[in-house]
Write a protein that binds this DNA or RNA. Structure first.
Lengths: 132, 132
DNA sequence: CATCTGTTATATTTGTAGTATAACAGATGA
DNA sequence: TCATCTGTTATACTACAAATATAACAGATG
């Protein structure tokens, strides 16, 4: 699992971390039950503060993607991922709506938009990177 | 054009404004050449500061959705909307990727995701609200 | 000339992001 | 027993963005 951070991004570091871990799970490079680095080791690895990692982990735990054990450390949730809850569906629609509206403004065909989404879907699920 | 703001949202007011104006254009309720309220009148209408409106307008102008004339005021860009530039395509992919990754984690079928996107696309482009 | 535009400038308040230290509790292994 | 590893909590600080509050300026209008 290689973490790439963009310190120039307007996206907070902890959010970039969450995104990359979620994509790691989606691609299969992080499997349920697999260990994640401790807050301290990951923090020193990528050169940020321990609290920044902790914030990302805590939020991922709240959403059900990982489990945190006091001593064992952090693992990808071995009981499986969270499902498609009504809250998730609502959040997803709220996030998608402005992006789709902009695509419509720019005269992007529905078919082209769907192709892009499909292509990203395939790209993420078929990457299956096996990195240390 | 009715503006609805959620003061509890984590999305900044100026960004909510941008989204709603863009969706207004996408739905056809705001047409190219149509006037938008002045920064002062809109600010007092929805009860926020003039600078908050100005920030939203300035960003929308930078992206090509509206034009700002010193005296005439603000209008939806009569020369048409911005097109599908490489920068836009990249930004769009960066925004879509983490959302699609989460959908995959939650075992959402590709078909179901595409249905949701298609349904939102239709919903937005067919709304055509004609409000004062 | 008053009044409407957008524009610019300055200052202040509030909240979030991130860092820096430090300490605590529980488990592990030597 | 003790050093060492976990996550956890607390406090303080800096930096920055969001939003507000005033104020003033420039240009056009009626």
């Amino acid at each position: 699992m290689i973490i790439r951070l963009d310190m120039q991004s307007d996206l907070p570091i902890y959010a970039q971390l969450m995104n990359q871990i979620i994509e790691g799970i989606a691609s299969g490079s992080l499997k349920p039950g697999e260990d994640l680095p401790s807050v301290r080791s990951l923090a020193s690895d990528i050169g940020v503060n321990l609290h920044t990692i902790n914030k990302a982990y805590t939020l991922l735990k709240q959403e059900g993607f990982i489990q945190i054990h006091r001593q064992k450390g952090v693992v990808v949730n071995p009981d499986g991922m969270p499902g498609i809850t009504p809250e998730y569906e609502q959040k997803q629609a709220e996030q998608l709506r402005p992006m789709i509206a902009e695509a419509i403004c720019r005269s992007m065909d529905k078919e082209r938009l769907l192709q892009i989404v499909e292509s990203l879907y395939e790209d993420i699920s078929h990457s299956e990177k096996e990195n240390a």
